[in-house]
Amino acid sequence: MKQTAAQDIPVLVIDKVTKNYTKLQPKNNLKETLVHFIKPQKIITTALNDISLTVNKGEFVAYAGANGAGKSTTMKILSGILQPNSGNVRVLGLDPSLNRVTLMKKIGVLFGQRTELWWDQPIITSFEWKKTVWDIPNDVYRLNLEMITDLLDLGPLLNTFSRELSLGQRMRADLGMLLLHNPEVIFLDEPTLGLDVLAKRQMIAFLKELNAEKKTTILVTSHDMTDLEEMAQRIILLSQGNIIFDGNFQQLRDVRGSISEIHIEVTGTPPVMDSLKLLESSGNNHVYSMVDSSIPLNQLLRELSKIENLKNLEIRKTSIEDIIAALYRELRG
């Protein structure tokens, strides 16, 4: 029987996973509180609803959704912090809930505003502490320290106390620290949150290079869809604990049909055109989408040229954020 090659085995497997949270229902008055004390009433919230997905080695996957969609819950289940109520999870072939210590030596995790750096010590002290505690071989540590120092521009910061770093500097140092042990998979929860433009560009460029050069598998969440589109090749969209889309960004654009918006400024009422559908209006400014993305450009331009009292015309590529927002609006009905 033919053996399955290691690279053909999915790095992440989530199979029919459900995660519920239970909390006590708050009461409004003393009588309800006394009744509740004798017979507590609970509210069950479903964070993940029977979801399934796989991620292969070397994939860079964006994991997106509104607040409360289940993104952070998934990350915590994959890293062994939480356990699902039902379903199976495997990370590098291991069950995170049963093999958390072993798994932590193979993965890296970065949760937004949290840090593993020692607050009142230089950055290099935190790095050396990790080398000792995690028993990272000298050659691996030196090689990775050199790489992260160069690519994340940490040289001037290694002897700086963590409390003296800006948010962008600390995020770079945290990312460098989680890479010291050569993780095969990294989970990043809002890694660009609060970063200025320059720090964000540095973070994104480094992650893309890490994925391309070392084939590190990356699962990343962010509320900035533009960042996700720049970083990842695949996007998984969550809504109320359910996966509503799994594919690449072009496929996501195709779901919405038109990938362009036509912005028109015209005096009077908004024009009616066969090729375009009116999306919104504000005063003399109107936004349209194409009824069919296969309509030839020359046909569209002929229609636009017939508009009377046209003051301004602009064709823009629809932002990925607008596409996702429209998709969520449709789901809500």
Rank of each mutant, 00 (worst) to 15 (best):
K130H: 14
K105D: 11
I136A: 01
L117H: 00
G168M: 08
K76Q: 11
N144G: 07
N138E: 15
W134G: 05
G155Y: 06
G80S: 04
I124A: 03
G80T: 03
L82T: 10
A64Y: 07
R142Y: 13
V101L: 11
T125G: 03
L117E: 00
P137I: 07
S166G: 01
T74G: 10
L152K: 04
D135K: 14
P122M: 02
Q121N: 03
D95Q: 10
G65D: 09
V109C: 08
L165V: 05
N67K: 10
V109N: 07
Q113V: 05
V91T: 09
W134E: 06
L98V: 14
W119V: 00
L152V: 06
T74H: 11
K106C: 02
L98I: 13
I124N: 03
P122F: 02
K105L: 09
S166I: 05
G155M: 10
K106W: 07
I136P: 01
L154F: 01
Q121S: 11
N85L: 06
T149S: 12
P156K: 00
E128M: 03
W119Y: 04
K131G: 02
T115E: 00
E128T: 01
L110G: 03
A64E: 07
G93D: 08
D153H: 04
R163D: 09
P156W: 00
G65K: 09
D139I: 12
A64R: 09
R163F: 13
L117D: 00
D95E: 12
L92N: 00
L157M: 05
V133H: 07
L151N: 09
L143K: 15
Q121E: 06
R114K: 15
R90A: 14
M75L: 15
K105S: 13
V140I: 14
S72P: 12
T115W: 00
D120F: 03
Q121R: 09
L82H: 14
M75S: 11
T160D: 02
W119C: 00
W129E: 13
I123E: 01
I81A: 07
W129G: 08
R142N: 15
N85G: 13
G112C: 08
L158M: 08
V133P: 06
V91L: 06
V101Y: 11
R100I: 06
N138K: 15
L94G: 02
N159L: 05
T73K: 09
